[in-house]
């Protein structure tokens, strides 16, 4: 398959329980390019656990500035008192076009509390919201750090409350993707954690191809697995192209078409 990919689910940095070999921006970009990935949405893995995400995020945006194929992703924690200033700094100062949240690690609900104002703000500014459903298989987590996945029904509710908010869910299981995308055209899901016999067939039985995105969850997962999963799927060329890159381009373009 000669598809070019936009990888919507990539991290850079470290994770306490894994030994990532891609330790420099150049090595990560080279690895992604070797797999046919022409654009990658990359967030800072340290921003998941670090108290102030702005610190690792500033390093991320600076480190990947020389790499035009990378769209750095700003991690926001709306529980923090400065999230509005943090968003403004990232958008106006660093040129951020995408925002990612980790409601399970940062311990808040998507359907009440500070998420409502953040969702309204992002929808008004046409900034897509990336929701990382999980970074690990919950069964394999360190026993003193059990973090459940983000509840899929909360994503569906958020999507219904904010129909103009573009939502991208990352690392969701097959069954969750069906729940979150049903009736919600503003929800897109990546394929990184969807894994079953005939993954693409199962996904497309419940979700239109326009709502699926290529995502590898590199470097947590082997990049090649997502590439091979999409390549092996029994689907026509056009929906394959949409999943590989077309839908992601559309989501990202939506972020910049309208003035802030």
């Amino acid at each position: 398959m000669s598809c070019k990919f936009t990888d919507t689910n990539v991290s850079f940095g470290t994770w306490p329980w894994m030994d990532f070999s891609l330790t420099t921006p150049a090595s990560l970009v080279a690895q992604l390019e070797s797999e046919g990935i022409q654009q990658a949405w990359i967030s800072a893995s340290e921003s998941i656990l670090f108290p102030d995400p702005d610190i690792p995020d500033e390093r991320l945006f600076s480190a990947f500035a020389p790499h035009p194929s990378v769209i750095p992703v700003k991690t926001l924690n709306p529980v923090l008192g400065n999230w509005r200033e943090s968003l403004e700094l990232a958008v106006s100062g660093w040129g951020a076009r995408l925002v990612k949240v980790y409601p399970n690690y940062h311990r808040y609900s998507l359907i009440d509390g500070p998420m409502g104002e953040l969702a309204t703000t992002l929808a008004a500014r046409r900034i897509p919201l990336l929701i990382q459903m999980r970074v690990e298989d919950e069964r394999n987590q360190y026993p003193l750090m059990k973090v459940s996945g983000v509840p899929a029904h909360e994503v569906a509710t958020l999507a219904a409350i904010h129909p103009r908010l573009s939502i991208v869910v990352l690392s969701a299981y097959l069954s969750e993707i069906a729940v979150m995308t049903a009736g919600h055209n503003n929800v897109h899901a990546d394929i990184s954690f969807a894994d079953s016999r005939d993954t693409l067939g199962h996904l497309l039985a419940a979700t239109p191809p326009d709502n699926l995105l290529f995502g590898s969850h590199t470097p947590f997962l082997y990049t090649r697995s997502a590439v091979m999963k999409l390549a092996a799927g029994k689907i026509d060329a056009e929906p394959r192209r949409k999943i590989a890159s077309g839908n992601a381009e559309r989501v990202l373009a939506g972020a910049t078409k309208l003035p802030y």
């Binding site: 894994d195 079953s196 016999r197 005939d198 993954t199 082997y222 090649r224 697995s225 997502a226 590439v227 091979m228 999963k229 390549a231 092996a232 799927g233």
Partner: peptide
Amino acid sequence: RDFASQLGR
């Protein structure tokens, strides 16, 4: 699991 994703590893 999917043969493809597992072979990918």
